[in-house]
Design a protein around this nucleic acid. Structure first.
Lengths: 329, 329
DNA sequence: GTGAAAGCGCTAACAA
DNA sequence: TTGTTAGCGCTTTCAC
């Protein structure tokens, strides 16, 4: 494998000059520049990334933590991140946490070992106090999920408003017995509950603890939620889910039980994934712009690296959230 | 940031010994081992990955080429790859090609620059002759899509059989006017056409060029296919799509036109993604085990790195493919 | 069992 | 404009 000094030898120049050519430094004569290019071509030379990384103290690599690659909402975020990353010369390292606290922490050592320049969280399992020490080692950005007290840039949606909007909508449509599905115990989840509770109490509606479901993420979880609902003596007539996948599970299973949607059971999703308008009846849902939240996040990340944004201080970008009325409510 | 020589100084040992401890070498006395661990803890030392990579001439990084992150079939493959990678201490670099020939070639330079130890293709845009030279620089594995003449390991499904199976099924159900959707021009696509053509000719059915559609990948493409069909004087009464996303687009649009599925138009998918059993009527489709094909691929990759499989010679692992009968045929 | 020293391939400060 | 040189942080011979 050819190295920079092979090219230097071949051209009769020093490796410094070759390096200058590789990195497009201005003060190199056109002739030598051409000479170097020729030699590189001839030798099949490519600069060794590890050597450059070591020398430059950066890798142009970003770790992206994502709970599951098979969740379309998260891949839409990833897609947004990737597009900006590609454009700006960064590569992404996939870190699938499977919603595990331990894996999340393990991936953070990528920062310590300087394998990546920074980390983007799209979901959070651990408390902020666990994560905070790592902010010393490089930029950490919170995307989508967040902690109220996190001392880093946050790109998120107004979840409280989103769930308030959704709950209000259900109430306006005449539903009064509303079930609510939670994900993990993050700021996001908290805010969603707040919005829900606010809408409910504004309407003078009671909260039934039997109608609150926890740790729901997948279609399968949605099916389980519906089964649990069917076992209740006092059943809700509407379900506000934490995601379209969960919602489609609820819907699927509701149909199996012969429940009429939305007459006997209204279902409200979250995300507005492609499936939302594919299933029947089409899913009413809260639209979260996944790709945009991703691309904004990557831009902020780059600004942090360049020191244009203080990476150790909380700053919040809040993207709009909206209700997409379809047929399940 | 603490380096290995800081640890050496702190302990009064040489950096060689510290390195031995880091890498769990046998011939280090227990006492010094303990001493080193203590010092590392105290100094907050973590080995620098770039330095190790440079020295060891490997990165434990694998580039995974994928057309779109938002295609659930491909993310299921990615999921399978990731799980084995994680287990074996490899990290994945996301390379979204957007089905672009140029991007695909660009990502291959990651191999040349030694940024990754190898490359996994889940789809292929360029001819094999373009890609082949890169096999000199490290293992390249073909997963899912393939070229007949590729001189590397291939993990795939028997696509010819799959589409034969699907077409036979349509014919048996009484459909005679069958449209067929293509993706890109790879061995996979070729084989699918072969299976289709074989089933058709066995049944003595003619091929209508108006019913062959090219470059169909997304739900939107599916909608377009149906619109084109509606504009035909002589319309097919069945569509064999190249993926469930395309199929769901066809279905969605068919409903919009008031077409009865499957009575007036049968639809056959490919993949068996989650949506297949979510949409209504449920989609008959060809099941491709995405996660398994991914995990098998990553195992083969590792075997290549260890020299247990010849990486410059074609070897084929073929996974089973099957028909999932549901309601659209 | 441990240390000295060379070197992986590259870049940048300094000198010319 | 170009070259010399030191060094990024680590591993690994080789010697003791």
């Amino acid at each position: 494998m050819a190295t920079i000094s092979d090219v230097a030898k071949q051209t009769g120049l020093s490796s410094a000059t070759v390096s200058r050519v590789i990195n497009n430094y201005p003060h190199v004569s056109e002739e030598k520049r051409r000479l170097v290019h020729e030699a590189m071509e001839e030798l099949g030379y490519f600069p060794n990334t590890s050597a450059r990384n070591l020398r430059n103290r950066k890798t142009n690599l970003v770790a992206v933590l994502i709970p599951r690659l098979t969740n379309p909402f998260f891949t839409s975020i990833l897609d947004g991140i990737e597009k900006v990353a590609e454009e700006k010369g960064f590569q992404l390292l996939i870190c699938q946490t499977q919603s595990s606290k331990k894996k999340e922490m393990d991936f953070l050592t990528l920062l310590k070992t300087k394998q990546v320049d920074g980390v983007i969280f799209t979901s959070i399992e651990n408390d902020w106090s666990e994560i905070k020490p790592y902010t010393e080692s490089g930029p950490i950005i919170l995307c989508n999920e967040y902690h109220r007290n996190a001392t880093v840039p946050i790109i998120r949606l107004d979840q409280a408003y989103g769930s308030y909007l959704g709950t209000r909508h259900l109430i306006e449509r005449g539903y009064r017995k509303i079930a609510f599905c939670h994900g993990s115990k993050s700021g996001l989840s908290n805010d969603r509950r707040k919005g829900f509770v606010r809408a409910m109490s504004e309407a003078g509606l009671p909260l039934n603890q039997e109608w609150i479901f926890h740790n729901t993420y997948t279609m399968e979880d949605g099916k389980n939620v519906l089964r649990e609902i069917m076992n209740l003596r006092d059943r809700p007539n509407a379900v506000f889910t934490g995601g379209d996948e969960v919602a489609s599970g609820v819907l699927k299973e509701a149909k199996r039980y012969g429940l009429k949607v939305p007459e006997e059971l209204a279902i409200l999703g979250f995300d507005d994934q492609p499936i939302a308008s594919l299933i029947e009846p089409e899913l009413t849902t809260i639209c979260q712009p996944g790709e945009e939240i991703g691309s904004r996040t990557m831009s902020v990340f780059i600004d942090c690296l360049n020191g244009e944004i203080d990476r150790k201080q909380q700053s919040v970008i809040e993207l709009p959230i909206s209700l997409v009325k379809r047929k399940t409510t």
